[in-house]
Design a binder for these strands. Sequence first.
DNA 1: TTAATATAGGATTATAAATATCTTATATCT
DNA 2: AGATATAAGATATTTATAATCCTATATTAA
Lengths: 162, 162
Amino acid sequence: MRLTRAAEYAIRCMVYLSTRGRGVLTSRQEIAARADIPTHFLAKIAQDLARANFIEIRQGAQGGFMLAKNPAQITLLEVVETMIGEIYLNDCVARPSSCTISYDCTVHRVWMTAREQLRATLNKVTFDQLIKEKSCVPSIPAREIGTNPLDGILPDSQDKLQ
Amino acid sequence: MRLTRAAEYAIRCMVYLSTRGRGVLTSRQEIAARADIPTHFLAKIAQDLARANFIEIRQGAQGGFMLAKNPAQITLLEVVETMIGEIYLNDCVARPSSCTISYDCTVHRVWMTAREQLRATLNKVTFDQLIKEKSCVPSIPAREIGTNPLDGILPDSQDKLQ
DNA sequence: TTAATATAGGATTATAAATATCTTATATCT
DNA sequence: AGATATAAGATATTTATAATCCTATATTAA
């Protein structure tokens, strides 16, 4: 009953892009280094985030990802469910047919409640709220923007060795 | 982010044993048939439930399982966590060291809240409440229902997600 | 126009977890 | 003693997760 790695990475990626702001192009390498995400895995995750219209992807030299919405318009729940599908917590809520005996049992109803509480909690939180306070992903001090944000972060030629 | 089959089976087993009442010996075959649980898997699950002192196991001819506590003294959360371990929902709550950057971030705090809500909801429900109304497992006696002990827990009295 | 850079998208591999069953041992009843 | 039933650990089987690889395509700069 644990969030997947992919979803945790997606959240970190979105937090980092939120600190950069909507429409600011950021390379995959930079995001991977700063948010501590395996670069290849991030590529895969970004595809899901792009399909869900949270980010936009630019190919080619100087390519990268950028936020396609305002952080205030993206909730934690939306990003999580983009990665793991709709949250259900237990099988009989997800697929009532898996309950062979009754379609309306008390156990079922407790899980329904738990599920709605959880989804409501995650849905109340937007990414602009998440970056207003200290988060897992370090934000860039304003004076650094414009300089190479990877300075001192990436050991030289990390991805060039493949 | 789904409850395991083993935990679902454990709940069904406990619901069924609760309808039988504390101290009533019931064969594994009967429980398996009535609660729709693979018999061999039930044996494995019963061992966990016995270790946690929810049930007592009698070996030998005419053996079986029986409830070792009153259903009112067993919560849904206890049975669930016996089977899947303590609920954490995400890794950075379970093992803060997995968060390489900050030990006190906003994302972390949202998951803490979600986790406590979920555990509180599951902890409010006891097995005597679960068998007072229709459950997934057919009960043997039809009981009188007075005031509904699940008020405040079941979905109809909760604020729902949009 | 070509070379270099970077992501797209599908395929593949590796690892871990969940699910289920099997086997030998032990306990209990008749 | 013989029949019946679970104990406990071992062993498959299946499924999901995590990560990486490969070929194609897009973009930029020389």
